[in-house]
Structure formats: structure tokens, C-alpha cells
Amino acid sequence: MTHGMVLQIPGEPAGTWYSLFNLYFSLGLLVGSVVVGMLLYFVWKYRESVSNESDDIKPGVVPGERSNIKLIMVFFGLTSIILFTLASYSILVTNYVEKVPKADDIFEVTVQGFQWGWRFIYPNGTEVVGEVVVPKDKIVVFRITSMDVFHKFQLIEFRTGADALPGAFNVIWIKPTQAGTYTIQCYELCGIGHSLMVATLRVV
């Protein structure tokens, strides 16, 4: 059983997830590089051996305020704008991911996590452990619960997942567009069999 970095997107919501992730990543990379770059530049430019600036720290004297309210407001404004952008797109995607799209034909599977494996119950009542087969190009809904402890049902390649809680149901959906075999794994520590709590998702 192997799976690797996702080279091709197997369906939704992975595609949308990547668009959001890429936005966060590019803005984060940009902001991070500018800020760290600025820090290192200042440190180098004003190092003591070349700096012409005065020494304003005197032992026994409480230093005065050195600030510039305009610049502080710029800091405040810039960070707010960046985070507002991220948050708005995130809310859109969250609403999309958390609400099962309307469709006539939904394939619904009940998932029971247990120590240590996954049981799948098909609409016709068939129970299978370890592998679930779902149709391509259809909305697939997983109703997730746990028979014992906290688990997390994770569809790795589809970039979605939800906690499996005893006594409650959690719902996630996918829409596979590529046939193939994908990995399901538990992502919440659930005891000594945690690492081996894997199952297969087969899209046909």
C-alpha cells in the first residue's frame, strides 16, 4: 500500500482545497520573505561597525518612547487587509466544503471507526471492513461515527476529513473524478493500533 504526494487531483473537494491552500501559501511566502528580508537587511545595514546612529541606551535612564503612530497604523492596516483577504476566501471554501452539493443521485456510506479499522455500511446494508468502493463522478457522502474512541477519518488524496466521535455523526462528501485506489487513514491517536488503522477507497 503506497500513496504519495498528490500529482493529479482525484476530484473534489481536493481541487478547491488546493486553490485555497495555494492562496495561503503564496501570500504567506510573500509576506514571510519580505518581513524576514527586511529584518536581516536592517540588522546588517545598521550593525555597530558601520552605523552612524547614536547610542541612546544609558544605564540607569529609562529610555523614552520611540514610535511612529502612522507606521504602526500601516502595520495594523496591512496585516488586517491580508488576513481579511484570506478569511473571506476561506469562508467561501468552508461553506462549499461543509455543505453537501445538491444532486439527484447521492451515494451514501456510513463509516464506523473502531480500534483499529474502518467498517463501511453501504446503502443496501452490506458491511465491509477495510475497503470501500464508490462510483466515479457522483457525490459520495460519508456519515462518520466511532464505536469506541476518538478517531479521525481522513481521505488523504481528497484533502478532507472529519473526526469520528462515539455517539455522534459527522458528515463529509467527495466527488471523485479519477478512477483509482486511494488511502483512508486515522489521523487522531487512538491507541497502539493507530498507525495501522488504514483502509482503501476504490473509485470505479
Binding site: 485555497l20 468552508t94 461543509e98
Partner: peptide, 10 residues
């Protein structure tokens, strides 16, 4: 981000 965290958590 809830959408990202659904996957990233864990």
C-alpha cells in the same frame, strides 16, 4: 481556515 484545517488537523 476550517476548510484547510479539516485536512491539516492531525
Amino acid at each position: 481556515s476550517i476548510a484547510l484545517d479539516r485536512f491539516i488537523r492531525g
